[in-house]
Design a protein around this nucleic acid. Structure first.
Lengths: 173, 173
DNA sequence: CTAAGTTAATTCATTAGTGAACTATGCATT
DNA sequence: AATGCATAGTTCACTAATGAATTAACTTAG
């Protein structure tokens, strides 16, 4: 990494050259889409660098954070799947590793015996409180040079993009 | 998928709740970072849906596109690694699958015998020209409702973000 | 009450991608 | 020419995530 700007230059050049041989190429949109892919990967990479000392990856961290922020500290695998856009298969693995590390517990639900109750442990809460503050400087750096207005605008545009992306897989027919 | 908006709502709620117990949480930045992760994943998912009928994933497609847009249709694995931010290991795999499908050729370089010359084939070019146009409507949908000004702004903000992310892994010390 | 359908979670096989170690070539210095 | 160092590409072992099939438990319609 540490060369996103260079990648964007290469995208610009590539799109430009493809444009010469492919008519109607929506070059602005193609470039934006590539930059969004790149930004997402860059943010994830930066985040995971910060998480690495604690041997958690992004999806494990996210899962732990949801349990942390849940009012009672409880949830279930399927709920966590919804929240994290992970498949059930992967969530099984994630929760197993978190259990193994003593950050959460799993026990069968009494109301619905298909379900599994997951709960964050005291140790899990402690880890979250320890991990969060060191992430803040990264976030600040990431958006350094962004005015309040820039941030609001980016927020607005990303929400609109999300709405549009949702359309795609919702066949309107 | 098809629920990015829902995920963003959950992020909003989660960040709000974490804010109550963690002082100094930069909630706006945290939300933006999560939305960028989500957007990147959403764009990739949408793109890969479109690529699937041709049994290519994003990194294979990207690799093929670079060879397509290269003036002479030539490149080398290490160059492709730079362009795609893929590791050399993975590029070995990617080029092997593209060769197997007859979309590119590989032959040892004469100038430098460590190198491998990769070249897109006529069949590879044909596939690219066939695949591109069906992607355009998706790109249009993705940015529907975006004014020219919105697109310019998003472009500008993402470039700035990329610059900031590059800082992170470049220890200024 | 029971048959059919749905949901929750898991297992297994497979795909993608990474890091470390290795081979071979080229390059620079003496 | 011999030594040391850097680069290009590969292999191998491993991690992360997905899709298909499976098991068990709940739900609903007849």
């Amino acid at each position: 990494m540490a060369k996103l700007k260079r990648c964007i230059e290469l995208i610009d050049e590539g799109v430009q050259r493809v444009r010469e041989s492919v008519i109607d190429l929506p070059s602005r949109e193609a470039t934006l889409a590539r930059m969004l892919l790149l930004s997402g990967d860059g943010v994830r990479h930066s985040l995971e660098q910060s998480l690495k000392p604690n041997r958690l990856n992004d999806s494990e961290f996210q899962t732990l954070m949801i349990l942390y922020s849940s009012p009672d500290g409880f949830s279930t695998p399927s709920e966590l799947c919804d929240y994290t856009s992970q498949g059930a298969t992967n969530m099984t693995r994630i929760t197993h590793t978190l259990v193994k590390r003593g950050l959460i517990t799993r026990q069968p639900s009494h109301e619905d015996r298909r379900r599994v109750q997951l709960q964050i442990t005291a140790s899990g809460r402690r880890l979250v409180r320890k991990m969060l503050p060191p992430l803040f400087p990264n976030l600040a750096l990431m958006f350094s040079g962004f005015s309040d207005n820039d941030k609001r605008t980016l927020d607005r545009l990303l929400r609109r993009l999300a709405g549009n992306l949702d359309q795609r897989d919702t066949p309107t027919s």
